[in-house]
Design a protein around this nucleic acid. Structure first.
Lengths: 214, 214
DNA sequence: GATTAAAGTGACAAATGTGTCACTTTGGGT
DNA sequence: ACCCAAAGTGACACATTTGTCACTTTAATC
């Protein structure tokens, strides 16, 4: 009698498998969760960049054999694009919450906090842009979805700037893209001199608001 | 009789070789100059990043065989670190000219222009930082020299900020590193909306001076 | 035309990354 | 104790990159 899987649910470190006869079978415990996988994927991607990202490095960090990873992803492009969709989803979910803020001023602070918390997303995006568009179907679909998520992000940020203009808070002659670019880029300034975090963030907010000149 | 080279002078596409008896011999013309080599090194490094940089790609772009490149550099780390010293030297030579500007205001405009002209240098630096410090002696020496050049750069930029403070032009509570970081990072903002160059630069200068808020 | 020495080539071996797969391990239920 | 199926392993074949080197080409002088 051949078993057919009806449903498969992953949880911390293991898998519930529901067979055709509704009997629960718990298979061998996994050595790493999808969370582990994505977390390490992010670390390796940030440290090594797209070209330097290999399944060997990832497998070593997860303490599994390279072959085990191929059980989940056929190649690094599929993994990285899947990972990036996951990251963008998380980011967008939090970005949507900006609508709960009543006015532009509180939205500005919320956005700044959010970008600080997710400050690696910029660098990750530039890694993803190195994935060849000519890849396989799964990768193509993922990249298309990412383009969609990007557009969604820009639309939301655009409406944030729009509100700022309507409330007369923003200097009106500055292009939208530049205002947003400034906020995004500022977060990436390396704190070489080791100024305490709170102080550093406050100074960045100040400089975005009013510039460097007296 | 064994020939010994006393001096060797490279010029556009060829090489003058001065032999022990002072007789000039012009060897086979080179297919690429050091300028060509560095220019393409820069392009490939920007397009592919450190890990994606290979002698194969470089050789193809220079229309020579891969073997030819090994006549000049033993491996990519030596080439890239040499190239980066060359870039930093050029940048610093121009940065030193800032002393010819009389006041802070003119220095500010000069620095902005310079960073715009050399806006790739930031990304190149991050590629160079991926070179393993454990490499061979030549690479180690080059990286040490680069650290030196970095310090020189920061010192000069620091004195620029210092003058701004003395002249009372800069908002006094902002940390030096943040002011400089802000100027550097601004240049990297991608102009997605395709705003004309002059307009874009003017808007960036404006936002650096006075921020985004009305 | 012979000689010279640098410039360049292409074939080779070594190292590393990629993808596959038969096999073993595991943790249940029967 | 036996079966099942997913999880994991390690060896294999293949591709790409790296570094070397004997050889050819070139542009001059003798």
């Amino acid at each position: 009698m051949v078993a057919r899987i009806a449903r498969k649910e992953e949880y911390a470190g293991a898998c519930r498998i529901y067979l055709y006869n509704e009997v629960i079978v718990i298979a061998r415990e996994r050595k790493f969760t999808t969370d582990d996988l994505f977390r390490e994927t992010g670390h390796v991607l940030l440290a090594q960049g797209y070209e330097g990202f290999t399944f060997s490095i990832l497998a070593e960090r997860l303490q599994v054999s390279r072959g085990a990873l191929y059980k989940y992803y056929d190649n690094k492009d599929e993994l990285i694009s899947d990972f990036m969709i996951h990251e963008m989803d998380r980011f967008l979910a939090e970005l949507r919450e900006i609508d709960n803020c009543p006015d532009f001023e509180s939205r500005f602070r919320y956005l700044l906090d959010l970008i600080f918390k997710r400050r690696t997303i910029h660098q990750l995006i530039s890694s993803v842009q190195q994935i060849p568009r000519s890849g396989n179907a799964k990768v193509k679909a993922n990249l298309a979805r990412l383009d969609q998520l990007h557009l969604d992000m820009y639309a939301r940020l655009g409406s944030f700037v729009g509100q700022g203009r309507r409330e007369g808070k923003l200097r009106s002659h500055l292009p939208d893209g530049l205002v947003l670019g400034f906020i995004f880029q500022s977060i990436m300034i390396p704190n070489h001199s080791g100024i305490p975090y709170e102080e550093w963030v406050a100074a960045i907010e100040d400089i975005i608001r009013h510039g460097i000149m007296a």
